[in-house]
Computed example of a mutant assay.
Amino acid sequence: MAPLTFGSLVYNYQAIDVIGPTDLINSSSKGLLKALKVYAPIDEKTISRAPDVVFHHIGLTKEPVALLSSYVTIVPTTTVDECPELDVLILGGPNPVDFELHPKYAEFIRRHVAAGKPLLTTCTGAFVAALAGVLDGKNATVNHIEFEWLKKRFPQVKWTMEKQWVVDGNLWTGSGAVAGMDMVAHWIKENFGQDVLTAGALGLDFEPRDIDGLLTVLPKRYNAAGKQISTHVYKHYDEY
């Protein structure tokens, strides 16, 4: 199976919007699950379903870009002109007040969506997608703090904040940054299986929430004393 190519456009987004989801994807990858098997009995069938992943951080140039938060600087690994075809594109959230979408980025987003490939947005990444025009007539959500502001600016989008994320065809829009991680967890579960997500999430000690914000995604297990323990990938821990 060919590696999953997972890309993000590099501009001044909030660091966790992209780094959180990509870390979860990486933790659920074949290479990381093989490494985790040193510590826990992860089934070979689970590892076989996990993806090999190649990440691309896509800039206008390869010059470093300072992100919106945490004094993090990203050095692009490729450019918008040279980037290979992606399987998945993720858009992190910038500050909408002073953000301008470069025409090359807008065209890159439109081309990706038109090809039917998944576009994932976290937080105000939906604002970036709306600027590119790919959310027109679609159901979408955004960070709930910016919801009313964005709804007025892009009335052609069917905005909702009833759920933590919204899926409309190949468009996946998450609300806040951590809800975006929850959304990506669901995407992993849907595409590679519950066991791959479970192993990857436990590698980060991360318990994703469901679309309603509830902790119902990972199966719970308890030992004879009633103490909650890790899920089925750690079967021999039942004795603890």
Rank of each mutant, 00 (worst) to 15 (best):
D238Y: 14
A132D: 14
V75F: 03
E44H: 14
V134N: 04
T160C: 12
H232F: 15
D23T: 00
A35S: 06
K151S: 01
K163M: 04
H144W: 07
T216D: 14
G226R: 10
P219K: 11
G7L: 09
W172P: 05
F127W: 12
A66L: 00
K220G: 05
A129F: 13
V134A: 03
Y222E: 03
F206N: 09
L214Y: 03
G59I: 10
L135F: 11
S28E: 08
N26E: 11
D43W: 09
G116F: 06
K163Y: 06
L33T: 03
W187C: 12
G59E: 03
A224D: 10
S29M: 01
L150M: 11
I229F: 13
K158M: 02
H102T: 05
W159H: 04
E146P: 01
A114G: 05
K138R: 15
F206S: 02
C83G: 00
W159F: 06
Y237R: 02
G125E: 15
Y237Q: 02
G203K: 02
C83D: 08
V166R: 06
P51F: 01
M1H: 11
T173Q: 05
V157K: 02
D81S: 14
I229L: 15
I25S: 06
G116V: 11
L33H: 08
E146D: 08
T141Y: 00
H232E: 14
M161P: 01
H56V: 07
H112C: 13
E82F: 10
I188N: 06
V196L: 14
E85R: 03
T77L: 14
G31E: 07
S28G: 12
E207N: 07
V178K: 14
V18W: 05
L24V: 10
D238C: 09
K163N: 07
G174Q: 11
F147A: 05
A199K: 09
C83W: 00
W149I: 14
I74G: 15
L89G: 08
E146Q: 03
V54N: 11
R221G: 03
I211S: 04
V38F: 10
P155A: 07
H102P: 09
E239M: 13
G193I: 05
E85L: 13
T121N: 09
P76L: 12
V75T: 10
Q228V: 09
A50H: 03
T46N: 09
L171F: 01
T61S: 06
A50N: 11
V157R: 02
L68W: 09
V53I: 15
F154I: 00
N139Y: 04
E190Q: 12
E239N: 03
D238I: 15
V142C: 01
P96F: 08
I58A: 08
N12G: 02
G226A: 04
S175E: 07
T122F: 13
E162R: 04
A126Y: 08
V80C: 13
K152Y: 09
A140H: 06
D17T: 04
M181W: 06
F192Y: 14
D23K: 04
